[in-house]
Design a protein around this nucleic acid. Sequence first.
DNA 1: GATGAATGAGCCTTCATTCAT
DNA 2: CATGAATGAAGGCTCATTCAT
Lengths: 197, 197, 197, 197
Amino acid sequence: MPRTAEAKQRLREEQRAHILEAAKRVFARKGLAATVDDVAIEAGVSHGLAYRYFANKEAIFSELIKQALQAPSADLQRVRDMPGTPGERLKWLLSAFVESRRQPESFLLLGQVLSSERAPDELRELVRQRSQDLQGTFRQLIVESQETFEVAAGDPDQLVRALFACVDGLTRWAMYDPEHYHEHFPDAEIFWRLLKP
Amino acid sequence: MPRTAEAKQRLREEQRAHILEAAKRVFARKGLAATVDDVAIEAGVSHGLAYRYFANKEAIFSELIKQALQAPSADLQRVRDMPGTPGERLKWLLSAFVESRRQPESFLLLGQVLSSERAPDELRELVRQRSQDLQGTFRQLIVESQETFEVAAGDPDQLVRALFACVDGLTRWAMYDPEHYHEHFPDAEIFWRLLKP
Amino acid sequence: MPRTAEAKQRLREEQRAHILEAAKRVFARKGLAATVDDVAIEAGVSHGLAYRYFANKEAIFSELIKQALQAPSADLQRVRDMPGTPGERLKWLLSAFVESRRQPESFLLLGQVLSSERAPDELRELVRQRSQDLQGTFRQLIVESQETFEVAAGDPDQLVRALFACVDGLTRWAMYDPEHYHEHFPDAEIFWRLLKP
Amino acid sequence: MPRTAEAKQRLREEQRAHILEAAKRVFARKGLAATVDDVAIEAGVSHGLAYRYFANKEAIFSELIKQALQAPSADLQRVRDMPGTPGERLKWLLSAFVESRRQPESFLLLGQVLSSERAPDELRELVRQRSQDLQGTFRQLIVESQETFEVAAGDPDQLVRALFACVDGLTRWAMYDPEHYHEHFPDAEIFWRLLKP
DNA sequence: GATGAATGAGCCTTCATTCAT
DNA sequence: CATGAATGAAGGCTCATTCAT
């Protein structure tokens, strides 16, 4: 019966992933105010079932946040091992960062964590931490790029913050107004102007 | 008794304004998840009193949103009647826009409207509308400025969206992480880089 | 295939008894608040299986109650057919009664029926009925024993109630505080003092 | 306005007491399985109101338990300061103990704590502790009374346990079957037989 | 037979809103 | 005017029960 057991296990994982997908859409739209029922309905299951896969509403949200933090972490890892001048690597990271925002649900979720006091402190701290890491890497690359004259001089902290704010705001607007934004989605080239000498 | 009546009227308005101020802080922090009691406690009154000044929780929120939309509207009006080259006027509007974000409550409120489906559709539509106006004005100024070579060539829609995203994101981050951001609050000069030729 | 059919039947009965045993422990501890899952886990089976042997949770509980009522009924039967003076028979019944409490699960179950309105009325009525029978027999023996001067004079109803209360309370305490009670478990001799002339 | 403030305060306390009274009846009957709605309905108020007076269901129950523990504690205190021979004082305590059971709700509540695993551990420990105190006092008096030959010789632990079991069981039965028990409610005299030489 | 996925009724709790004082 | 007692709708969560595999 290994076949059956395996199949069951797989089904279980698929169902879990299915509920998570639904939850991602719902939480991205409604924030933590979304109800478990909202999620269940979006997933086409009963709310009771959601509780067989997750301990409670927060656990669903939490899992989504952790998933959303993985992509940027991977990007960070890659840029560290990447060859090229600091400016080239910075440009690549900026591109990856901007492009990832075309699928805005994940980033909206992260925004919900920061913007709602209902989010558990632990998660907020986690997101802030990762965001600090990301900013630290950008800052480092900016400083190095300034030394190679690939990036304009100036307070690197201000530059990082401006950059982050921009990309973050972009995500938000892309979500609110997808019609307009998908057509004229700004590309990384524009944000590069913030940095170029 | 006109004196008394007037005084009463004034008192009433002050009380109302007082509650609104408290509500602004509370809603900016907690979003629509804030309770009427949260607002009343912040204002130092009973929740029953809030209902003498506003029909319901939504009415308080709604009023705050409408107030928050006034400042940018006024800026828009002013920039229309302003002398100078398109580039100069654009620069002024950008400055006004960025500076206004140093008091982020209002803008956070607008963000809450857009980011949560709990907000009434009517409000969301209103905010979106005003934001379109604002973007329209910026776009117009950008196009004109491109004609006078005061702004770099490029898809003006992309430029507007990038600009808005930046300023909006900036506000948000300034709120989440006030310590770091108030120290290194980016000035309009940085955003101007997005546009300058 | 009678062999197989018989074997199946036997297996079925064993499984049923196994589940009942588990349920007895669980219900004695947790009362009707115990879940079907509690029972299934204690029995080492799935909760679904319990429903193949019993119509519902109440049916399990009901069956346990009926089993718990059998032992005292048998004692009653036996004392009726027993030789000896009324006092001797009364003493024997009291002993049997007290001794049976050393295995307290059954009696705790009966207590759960009486102490919680969640128990079905029908069961409560049944337990009360049997208890009346038991009390009736005791009362009868007490009256007869008073006539033979083997028991002190006095309101036989009061004596019966006192006796029952004592034995019942004893059972309960034996369960709550097994450490202390098993060491110093009162024997029937003590209760006899309530009656002796 | 001290009048009004006082009146309000008094009303509030009365309402609280009223809800507690209702809760006492309901919890005594149904145990912790009783719902907040059961309590509210018994008190003739909405369930929401109950939450203005108590943090949650457990807080209501907890308060009831603490109240129920006060009467026996007071009795204990009194018997310590009482003049007379050990036997006399023991008799008085037994009487007080038995008589208090004519109002059985409180004691049933204590029983619910011990008999239900749903009860919070803290409460169970508290009840057990108090019960140990009580038993300790009885034991002490029994030992002293044995020395003055006011009580029969025998293992004092067994005697205490038998006594407690009896009185406790009595309470229970008085509740289950009030009709029969209130008529023939055993008096302390009967229980004294357990002890008398 | 045996499992456990799935459902939904019901309970605990919060909070927007009303209203008597 | 101002308070806060009171209500009830709604949401989180559990668990008895059913049923496909």
